[in-house]
Design a binder for these strands. Structure first.
Length: 466
RNA sequence: UCCGGUGUGGCGCAAUGGUAGCGCACUCGACUGUUAAUCGAGUUGUUAUAGGUUCGAGUCCUAUCACCGGAGCCA
């Protein structure tokens, strides 16, 4: 194989025109035979949604010897001449001069057919589903969003911080954790009737991270503005279209930001991402708009063009109370907003993203900064129509005494968080941050209904195959 | 975890308690600058698993498992 010469389908289609010496490598999506002595092949190499139509005369070099293996799913290399297409449906096509099959795909056994499959079925063949239009498009969009997230923060001077995956601190209330241990689960060393973690690999009980926030704060208090973008693990037994046991989270943390700065950043961030993806993933988004959800393009443009609604929690409760809607869960000040409430606000009242801020202290974690009076804290959630919460953030409590009090009130072991408290003892500063669930973003952008279909290999309760 | 639903050829689905069928895919043939190709013929089943009721169970009952949807928790 001559490494120097390979043309990507995306580039071929972008440049168009007639050209000799074109060589593509990719997977056959469909083959149509003509008894006129030639075949049509559609080749996809993942560089874009579109296939390249190849027309191959049956006498060309390689066709006869490989014909048996040339079916949907097989991997091929085709060299030839790019010409204007005589048929409808494509402007150019590749007239094959030689063809080679790298690996065949027995049509009797290859599970992907030339037709639509249910996403449930495709999940069972997660190793083959990237070869479908939908999953190719999802992963290209996912890739662009990840790239765009880095661009956004890097342009603003944020430092990309790698927080640890293995941790001893739970970020309070963030959910059940996966334990990390090298002890024998069958017979761990015991002391006083309990597992003796001093004999474990790290000498104490450790888990997979549920959030990099606390460690992120440490570096924000030195580098001013940081962000993390990494895997996060929650051992919650939640089985919904919006939850994964392993997912990716983006967590910026900024010194000298108050809650309003935090909300501004979150809004700018989402605006930036939607604008960027609309610009750079046109073909894929049009596909989603046509095949998955006919409203996404319009909705995304709406998000880019309009500012978000911002409403304090107390006012949101007020709006809900006088709505005359029959909610399953009744509304009163102090309650957690339920999915139905959030959806009502973002979908029916405001019809756009909504930021709710200043939540009651009692329903939020210890690290959030108390507002005057102490009833509410500087928390904010960004709600998207249909999807619900995509961002949760807050200004952090930066007063040592107040934080100590809050931790004790919520029953936390202050010893254990000494290093976190130290940030307030030495050179404390007002600071804020938020967390964005990356897969939820991909879900919203693509219109995919199930979060398991926007990550390459989903991990959910009872499912860690592949 | 709770509530509801579903589980039938490779895939998508059908079958008042009475002979398991259709579409797609696949195989063969015909036709064709084709493009969700078209036309004809053909192959494919321990009806999720284990019990039970019944003369007889895909269908009814019990349990288990899996999946889907909703809820809770959250991102």
């Amino acid at each position: 194989m001559e490494k120097s010469k390979r043309d990507k389908v995306k580039e071929i289609l972008r440049r168009g025109g007639e050209r000799a010496d074109v060589r593509v490598m990719g997977w056959v999506r469909t083959r149509r035979d003509s008894k006129g002595g030639f075949s049509f092949l559609e080749i996809n190499d993942g560089s874009c949604l579109s296939n390249l139509q190849v027309i191959s005369d049956h006498n060309i070099d390689g066709f006869q010897s490989y014909s048996e293996k040339l079916h949907t799913g097989s991997c091929v290399e085709v060299s030839g001449k790019l010409v204007q297409s005589q048929g409808k449906g494509q402007s150019v096509e590749l007239q094959a001069m030689s063809i080679k099959v790298y690996g065949g795909a027995d049509p009797e056994q290859y599970p992907l057919q030339k037709k639509q499959h249910s996403f449930e079925f495709l999940r069972e063949i997660a190793h083959l589903r990237p070869r479908t239009n939908t999953f190719g498009a999802v992963m290209r969009v996912r890739n662009r969003l990840a790239y765009s997230i880095h661009n956004f923060f890097q342009d603003r001077g944020f430092v990309y911080l790698h927080t640890p995956i293995i941790t001893t601190s739970d970020c309070e209330g963030a959910g059940e954790m996966f334990q990390v241990t090298t002890l024998d689960p069958g017979s761990p060393p015991m002391v006083d009737g309990k597992t003796d973690y001093s004999q474990d690999f790290f000498g104490e009980k450790t888990s997979l991270t549920v959030s990099g926030q606390l460690e992120g704060e440490v570096y924000a208090m030195a580098l001013s503005e940081i962000y993390t973008f990494g895997p996060t693990f929650r051992a919650e037994n939640s089985n919904t279209s919006r939850h994964l046991s392993e997912f990716w989270m983006v967590e910026p943390e900024m010194a000298f930001y108050d809650l309003e700065d935090d909300m501004n950043l979150a809004e700018d961030f989402l605006h930036y991402l939607f604008k960027d993806v609309l610009e750079h993933c046109q073909e894929d988004l049009e596909f989603f708009n046509k095949r998955i959800d006919k409203t996404i393009l319009e909705r995304h443009r709406g998000i880019v063009e309009n500012s978000f609604e911002r409403i304090p929690y107390s006012e949101a409760i007020h709006v809900l109370e006088k709505s005359n809607k029959n909610f399953i869960y009744s509304v009163e000040w102090g309650c957690n907003l339920q999915s139905e409430h959030e959806r009502y606000l973002s979908e029916e009242v405001f019809k756009k993203p909504v930021i709710i801020f200043n939540y009651p202290d009692e329903i939020k974690p210890f690290y959030m900064k108390a507002n005057e009076g102490g009833e509410t804290v500087c928390a904010m959630d960004v709600l998207l129509p249909k999807l619900g919460e995509i961002i949760g953030g807050s200004q952090r409590e930066d007063d040592h005494e107040v934080l100590m009090k809050r931790m004790k009130a919520k029953g936390l072991d202050t010893e254990h968080y000494q290093w976190y408290l130290d940030l307030r003892r030495f050179g404390s500063a007002p600071h804020s941050g938020f967390g964005l669930g990356f897969e939820r973003l991909v879900q919203f952008v693509t219109g995919m209904e199930n979060i398991r279909d926007v990550i390459p290999f989903p991990r959910t309760p009872k499912h860690a195959r592949f």
